[in-house]
């Protein structure tokens, strides 16, 4: 337990900091409700024309969109500004002086940052889209519960893995930022990549059918597309387990790459004198 304390502390301070910004939290929530509403309206319009052409039902698409908004903070589309800041003010060197596993420390910090931003919004979004909408008779546009017991049970590990994978992606991005001192450049590449290939822009199955095989196995699919499709049982049984394996596999790969990259960067800093 003692060894975990600094990581817990890092997590907790970040969480507390984020809670202070209450107006920001509410504003962010309002923004995302709007975002979700617009995208749902667009989908509804297209489904109205030719619903049969769609790979999933409108109800599932709507749930997909609400889930996406609720968990948007878990999408690694921007490198952590604190890391960029630490780099610019030379703080990176200080991390080396602390008697901790640098990657683990930053990973915990990243997790704290993401979850602190995600949890309040997810709760609010659940209340609004999952509970209030059905109550006022707009249940057709609501965020539905998981499709059955199996889906619900499978979603739990999928959620954990999606978070772990997101943190691993963000870590790699942060390390590249720290190494290249170029936060903007990294974000310029990271953002479009993640938003398209995670399934955040559109569920991956909406893209042309020819691309499907590739889209389903690339690393970012585990960030949004796979876990959400497990949620409404579009991926069930064996396919779901395959999806989980894909998430886990890519997480391991990206964590490994991240640790390697961090090693090299730290060694380079040592040689340069920090």
């Amino acid at each position: 337990m003692q060894s975990v304390r600094p990581y817990l502390a890092a997590f907790r301070t970040r969480f507390q900091l984020m809670l202070q910004y209450r107006a920001a939290a509410l504003a962010g929530f309002a923004t995302q409700c709007w975002w979700g509403a617009i995208r749902i309206m667009v989908f509804a319009a297209f489904y109205g024309v030719h619903a049969a052409a769609a790979p999933i039902s409108l109800a599932d698409a709507i749930t997909y969109i609400w889930l996406g908004q609720a968990l948007l903070a878990l999408l690694p589309w921007l490198a952590d500004p604190e890391i960029g800041q630490a780099v610019r003010t030379g703080g990176v060197g200080y991390d080396r002086l602390r008697p901790l596993d640098a990657y683990g420390f930053w990973y915990a910090r990243t997790l704290g940052w993401m979850l602190a931003r995600a949890v309040p919004r997810a709760v609010l979004m659940l209340l609004a889209a999952g509970i209030v909408l059905p109550l006022v008779g707009l249940g057709a546009w609501a965020w539905r519960p998981p499709s059955g017991m199996a889906a619900a049970l499978l979603f739990l590990p999928a959620f954990v893995l999606m978070t772990a994978l997101a943190a691993a992606v963000l870590m790699l991005a942060n390390i590249v930022v720290a190494a290249s001192l170029n936060e903007r450049g990294v974000n310029a590449v990271l953002t479009p990549l993640v938003i398209v290939f995670s399934g955040s822009l559109l569920p991956l199955d909406f893209f042309p059918d020819a691309l499907r095989p590739f889209l389903h196995v690339q690393p970012f699919a585990g960030l949004v597309d796979i876990p959400f499709r497990i949620y409404f049982a579009d991926l069930g049984g064996g396919a779901a387990l395959q999806g989980l394996a894909l998430q886990a596999g890519w997480t391991v790969v990206l964590v490994g790459l991240g640790r390697l990259a961090m090693e090299r960067m730290m060694r380079r800093l040592e040689m340069q004198g920090g």
Binding site: R12, Q16, L19, Q20
Partner: peptide, 13 residues
């Protein structure tokens, strides 16, 4: 005014 600590932060909300 803002109270310190985690509880204070939540109350501040």
């Amino acid at each position: 005014e803002r109270a310190p600590g985690l509880a204070g932060a939540v109350r501040g909300l």
